[in-house]
Design a protein around this nucleic acid. Structure first.
Lengths: 207, 207
DNA sequence: CAGGCAACTGTTTGGATATACAGTATTCGG
DNA sequence: CCGAATACTGTATATCCAAACAGTTGCCTG
C-alpha cells in the first residue's frame, strides 16, 4: 500500500472510528463535519486519494459505499480470524487452502508471541503437557526454536507436535507421555524443519 | 426482547450478514432485492417492527441508519468478548465487576453450548483432565449439571472446578489428580450451588 | 363474521448523498 | 520559476434513500 500523508491517515482513522462506533461508513458530509470542512469536495478528494492508494474501496453510486481494505501489516485481514489446520497433506505448505478446515475469530492478545494458526492435534503423545487428542494448538510461525519449547515439526512428509531438544547435529523430539518413544533426527542425513512453536491451547469440548 | 416471527428473524439475519460482508447496513431497496420484495415498504415495515421489538435501532433521516442492538444472550455490543474472571471474592456474584480481569474476543462458535465467561483456574487438581494451573476454563452459565460433567461449583464462599457426581442427597466433587481428595457435600446440610459447566479450555502459554 | 395482525404490492416525495466542475493557496522537486 | 500534488472553498445536480400513504391477501382470534 502506498504511504499515506498525515492528513490522509487522519481521514482513514476517522472512517475506522465511525465504522466502529456508528456501525456504518460515514458520508462525505459527515467527514466534513468531523474535520470542520465546509465543502463536501474536500472529503471526496481525500476518499479518492485513499482509494487510489489502496487503503479503501469506493462503490460508485451507493450511499456510504466505503470499504476499508486490508490493514498495512498482516496481509490476510480479508480472511479474519485464525485458520484451523487439520491433517496436513504430505508435501503441502501447512497453510495451504486444502489444509484449512475453518476460521475462528480469536483475540490476538491472548497469546504471545501471536498465534498465526490453530493446529488440530491428533493422538495422545503430549497428554502430560496438557495437550489432548482433538485440542487446537495455537502456533506461532517460525523456523527457530530453543530447547524445551513445544514445536510443530516436519519430518520427511509428516507433521508432528513434540517438545524440542537439540544437541549439535541431533534433534530430539520428546513426547509428554511415557507410552511414547522420543524421536531422534540426524540433521546431516534426514530432512527436518520447524514449522512453528506452540504458544497456547484451545480445547473446544471438556474431557 | 420481544419474540420475533420467523420472517422477522430472517430479516434480522440478513441485516447482520449484510453488515458483516459489505461493512455497511442495507437500504430498504437492498433488503427487497435480497428477499425478492417488489416494494420498499415491505422492508420498511419489517424494520419498524424490529425496531419496536428492540432488535434494531433506526436513526431517522439517515441513509443506512440501522443499528443492530444487543443479542439476547450475554454479548452486548458495548462490552464485546468474554470476561475473564479471576479470584472470586467471597459472597459476590461470579460476574461482578470486581472479579472481571479483562475481556477477550473469542469466537462463540468454538464452544457448544456457548461460553459465557472464562474462569482462570488455580491449582493442579484437574491436571489429568488437561486443565492446568493458570488455564482459562470456558464456562457456560447454568445451575444444572449431569454426573461426569466438569462444573464450576460454589461451596460456602469458595468457588472450585471439579468433576461433578450426584447420588441422592450427596454431591461428590472429584479432582482429576490422585494427589487431591474428593469433596463430599450433603445437600441437606451444606450450602452448594452450580455456577456453570466447563465447555472448553484456553491455555495462553505453552507448558 | 368482524377485526387485528403479518406480510406484502404500488406509488410518491422531500431530503440525503455522491460526484462533477470551477476556483484558491501552499508546498516541493526539477 | 514552473508544473504537479496536496488540501481545501463554493456551487450544482442527478440519483439514492427514507418514509409516508393507499391498497391487498391470508391467517388467527374473540
Amino acid at each position: 500500500m502506498e504511504p499515506l500523508t498525515k492528513r490522509q491517515a487522519e481521514i482513514l482513522a476517522l472512517i475506522r472510528k465511525f465504522l466502529a462506533e456508528a456501525g456504518r461508513p460515514p458520508t462525505r458530509a459527515e467527514i466534513c463535519e468531523a474535520f470542520g470542512f465546509s465543502s463536501p469536495n474536500a472529503a471526496e478528494e481525500h476518499l479518492r486519494t485513499l482509494a487510489r492508494k489502496g487503503a479503501i474501496e469506493m462503490i460508485p453510486g451507493l450511499s456510504r459505499g466505503i470499504r476499508v481494505l486490508k490493514t498495512p501489516r498482516g496481509m490476510d485481514a480479508a480472511e479474519p480470524g485464525l485458520p484451523v489446520v487439520g491433517r496436513v497433506a504430505a508435501g503441502s505448505p501447512i497453510l495451504a487452502e486444502e489444509n484449512v478446515e475453518e476460521r475462528y475469530q480469536v483475540d490476538a492478545r491472548l497469546f504471545s508471541p501471536g498465534a498465526d494458526y490453530l493446529l488440530r492435534v491428533r493422538g495422545h503423545s503430549m497428554r502430560d503437557a496438557g495437550i489432548l487428542n482433538g485440542d487446537l494448538l495455537a502456533v506461532h510461525r517460525t523456523s527457530e526454536a530453543t530447547s524445551g519449547q513445544i514445536v510443530v515439526a516436519r519430518l520427511d512428509s509428516d507433521v508432528t507436535v513434540k517438545r524440542f531438544q537439540r544437541r549439535g547435529h541431533t534433534v530430539r523430539l520428546l513426547p509428554e507421555n511415557p507410552d511414547f518413544e522420543p524421536i531422534e533426527v540426524d540433521l546431516r542425513r534426514e530432512p527436518f524443519a520447524i514449522e512453528g512453536i506452540g504458544v497456547g491451547v484451545i480445547r473446544t469440548r471438556p474431557r
